[in-house]
Design a protein around this nucleic acid. Structure first.
Lengths: 282, 282
DNA sequence: GTAAATAGTATTGTTATTCAATACTTATGT
DNA sequence: ACATAAGTATTGAATAACAATACTATTTAC
């Protein structure tokens, strides 16, 4: 009876190369085909990712690193296009509902969430708990489908939420399908700042946990993102046997313990991930 | 036992003033603060809205009305930024998961969906059927929270989906809170093309149905968007008693009839919409 | 299997559009 | 009420975006 129904961590920049727009020689962005204005516009929209609330022009200018004039012009443009809303009294901007249309085009065009849906529903029914489908995105996992636990009457989890890979069961399940080098590189690029006092930040220990996944078939995390939250996850494999995402189930203490999670939920996540893997390969 | 769990109509351009980017004197876009490149970039992303599948460069160029070179540059840019994915073998573009981050910033910043969530869950529990929360967007309703019916084991509805206002219960529930002039104007700007053979397209008849909502407190639609789908909706009011959205419940024939919907579901939608209205005003 | 046609990619010179700076206006807080 | 800070409007300069076009690769037709 709690409102914790999944990893709700907001998309903190979990990459080391953080900060404002990098302006180093970049083969990608130096290409004359690259339109810099577009990058700036999106940097404005993404400024709202980390700082949930609304933002003032000045804050946007500071967060994005684009100047005051630029912030002004891009905010004006985005408001005109309907992707930002401006509160005329406070002059603060906030993301507008039109943004949902963009995510809709992803969800509608990409079969993974619709193919996975019935299996996720089944997993939720079998477990009664919150079930999530996540895919890798940089050093994070991004949740593309989320089901609240059947007895959560408080909140429903939000699609598009992100959590660091290194300290989530979802992330470690996915990582277990990569080569040692790939895992190591990703961890090196991750910001291993602890989120709770249970977050494991020692690279060797993380590697050991990831290695465990290969033996057991599932990954677990004990309150590493949210105090009181226990999660278990299994990887979904692509045609080349590399991970393309993972299924996880989240529960809370003290109703659950790591032992009961392992006993009751491991078979469900593994079966679900396996079913989705098969469904996707057809 | 069907997979129809809500209005899944894709965002057909329901405005009359359709077609490519308008290049008439427009006080909004003529403002020197307006950055045209941003508009073009979003027009590329939105091209995927109506045409679910992936798109080739040429198709994007044609749909958006921006030239071939421009399509090339904006696609390159969007791919680099990670908002589009390019299939190297087919050279076709499709929306990428990173777009979910944008919708997440909306959902996380706007309290409406989280405040409404518990009431929607309750409505779903009481009805067992699919429940949606929609808000107005141009001539459409956009669904910002969706719950599948408890016995839908097939699919889950996608947030961000749109459906025309004039022929949905959600839309007409919302419209009923506007002034006659506002309703009339919106209908005039709507593309009243029938979607099914049950779609009501006569303006007078639509106005009559909207007027009915004022008496009954709820709107209904009989297979106007999807054959076999019956829906009922009630408006959510803002502080000024103007609508800010609506709650609807969708069911399917032949398990349900218009009569049974009215009898069983009207009290639920009305109560839910009322509860959400109250919750938002606090 | 070859040719024709179509789609995608790279390059370039021109100029329109974005740009930062700054002046001006409105809000905020002491 | 004044001072400070934030937001808005304007402008001239020049960069970055632009469309056209040449080039390459891939599909389609025969």
């Amino acid at each position: 009876m709690t409102n914790i129904s999944g990893p709700l961590i907001q998309a903190k920049n979990t990459s080391k190369k953080s900060g404002s727009l990098m302006q180093k020689a970049n083969p990608k962005t130096d290409n004359p085909l690259f339109v810099g204005s577009v990058e700036k516009a999106f940097s404005v929209l993404q400024a709202f990712g980390q700082h949930k609330k609304s933002l003032s022009l000045k804050e946007i200018s500071e967060i994005t690193g684009i100047g005051k004039s630029a912030a002004q012009r891009f905010c004006y443009t985005l408001v005109e296009l309907g992707f930002l809303e401006r509160d005329d009294s406070s002059r603060r901007m906030r993301p507008a509902a039109r943004l949902l249309g963009l995510s809709h085009s992803y969800l509608a065009s990409n079969p993974i969430s619709s193919i996975a849906a019935p299996y996720l529903l089944q997993a939720r029914e079998n477990s009664g708990e919150a079930v999530n489908l996540g895919i890798p995105m940089d050093q994070d996992v991004i949740y593309i489908a989320r089901l609240a636990s059947t007895n959560s009457h408080i909140a429903h989890p939000i699609v598009g939420g992100r959590a660091p890979m290194f300290c989530t069961s979802s992330g470690r399940a996915y990582l277990s399908t990569l080569s040692q080098d790939e895992i190591s590189d990703l961890l090196d690029e991750s910001d291993l700042t602890p989120i709770t006092r249970h977050t494991i930040i020692d690279k060797q220990e993380i590697l050991r946990k990831i290695d465990d996944v290969l033996n057991k078939g599932y990954a677990m995390a004990n309150q590493e993102c949210i105090v009181g939250e226990l999660t278990i996850a299994a990887p979904i494999l692509g045609p080349d046997h590399k991970g393309i995402g993972s299924v996880n189930i989240c529960v809370t203490r003290p109703a659950w313990t790591m032992e009961s999670v392992e006993e009751k939920l491991a078979p469900i996540v593994c079966q679900t991930a396996h079913n989705i893997t098969l469904a996707l390969s057809n």
